[in-house]
Design a protein around this nucleic acid. Structure first.
Lengths: 238, 238
DNA sequence: TGAATAGTGTCTTTCAGACAGTATTGG
DNA sequence: CCAATACTGTCTGAAAGACACTATTCA
């Protein structure tokens, strides 16, 4: 058997390659993340544990990592085009009992959905409280979720990312509430409004949201807006 | 042959798994990146092209992706513990002619080194001018380099990352110069100094840097400092 | 003394924080 | 009218920009 340098490289045992998604949405006034329960089949790692939705890259069906992430998301949630961003990759000899494995983690934001669910039967939304989720997750998915929450929090300080968590029509108090939910602290109303309106991110609709009190202006996202970066963070608590 | 769900998953054809590094340093008053020239062996993709240093994950020697990145860096540059951060991953069916491949890209900052080189013979420093490097790179390494430059620029706006590009001892004008090189625009001296001194990032030494004019205070990084995040960016040019 | 670079001070601008005050609905 | 929430205005403070000014060296 010839051992050219090339042959050697390609003969390396190859790590398992997977993609996982951290899908966030606001439900019932709290940040939630979508998890799936692992099958209990023979030889399955972490049977019955909750895990991030994901799976093996399929070199036939998936043309790229992102395509794979989109496919997995669609299979698990039925959602087509949410905000999707790469979070990072986690790879080691020990993270999967089946062998050396590397996962590519993506991070998705879904608009708030009405209480009727649109996710698959084996998937469930879990509230993120105090930066954690109740069940212990399979693999190193707890670490990945931690990183995703941190990234979300950090970006919310200085970007318009929460806009992707909003339904099509929303009011400025709604949007502020979502910022506050993610950051877990209250923000100043007037500064918040000034920043959002200056960002050229949203546009008012002709209609108002009626309620038991003064109606609020409805807005929607401007078309095809990628996230806006602000020059300052909201003043951190310290 | 039994085809349990598990068996099916593990029987997926596995993508090639590699790690690549984007190594930055300041040399001759300009941002440089370290590239290696690809071998010209038979069947080698992109023979003779310049590429980012990297290679296949070795499931025996490498316990994790980061360990692999550190090993590759050491092999190519001889450097042990620079600033290392994951940049992202790139994977697709077409990026490597040898098959479906995914690379995990890391991003490293080296302190400015004296002109005598410490890199391997087949590696060379290339100046980054106008956000580009002269040679056309192998694979999608041009894209990866672009992303790395963008990440570096973006972070330099609001973090103390350039501190990792400095030699052990440096003056505030030196540090400002490095910020200016990376951002490719001049900064205000007094605002820059105020920000850096307020960041509790550096400490003065007893000595001064002598020159043909007024001596400058020498500083060094405080011990074990992870990067500092500022609450504002430097005011962007627009 | 003058050139050159290091470093400080001062005024202005910008924008967030605080918070009071006004507006508009339903009951 | 009152409660409740939407929205605006005004003052203050922190930090950056602009830029002039002083400080310290060598030639």
């Amino acid at each position: 058997m010839p051992m050219s340098k090339l042959k050697e490289s390609l003969d390396f045992p190859r790590p398992l390659t997977t993609v996982d998604g951290v899908v966030f949405a606001i439900r019932d006034d709290a940040l939630h993340v979508l998890l799936v329960q692992r099958a209990a089949g023979e030889g399955e790692p972490f049977p019955g544990s909750w895990a991030l939705p994901g799976g093996f890259v399929d070199t036939v069906r998936d043309n790229s990592l992102e395509a794979c992430a989109i496919r997995k998301l669609k299979e698990k949630t039925g959602v087509v085009s949410p905000y999707l961003e790469q979070l990072g990759s986690w790879g080691s000899a020990t993270r999967d009992p089946r062998g050396w494995s590397a996962t590519h983690a993506y991070f998705a934001l879904l608009p708030a959905v009405p209480t009727r669910d649109q996710h698959a039967a084996d998937a469930e939304w879990f509230a993120v409280t105090a930066g954690r989720v109740k069940p212990k997750l399979a693999f190193d998915h707890g670490d990945i979720l931690q990183a995703a929450i941190q990234r979300l929090r950090s970006k919310v300080e200085y970007t318009s990312l929460p806009a992707y968590l909003m339904p099509q029509e929303f009011t400025l108090p709604d949007l502020q509430r979502v910022y506050e939910i993610v950051l877990d602290r209250v923000l100043e109303k007037s500064a918040f409004r000034a920043r959002m309106l200056a960002a050229d991110l949203i546009e008012p609709l002709a209609r108002m949201r009626k309620g038991p009190n003064r109606p609020a202006q409805l807005y929607r996202l401007k078309k095809a807006k990628s996230p806006v970066y602000f020059a300052r963070t909201f003043n951190p608590p310290g």
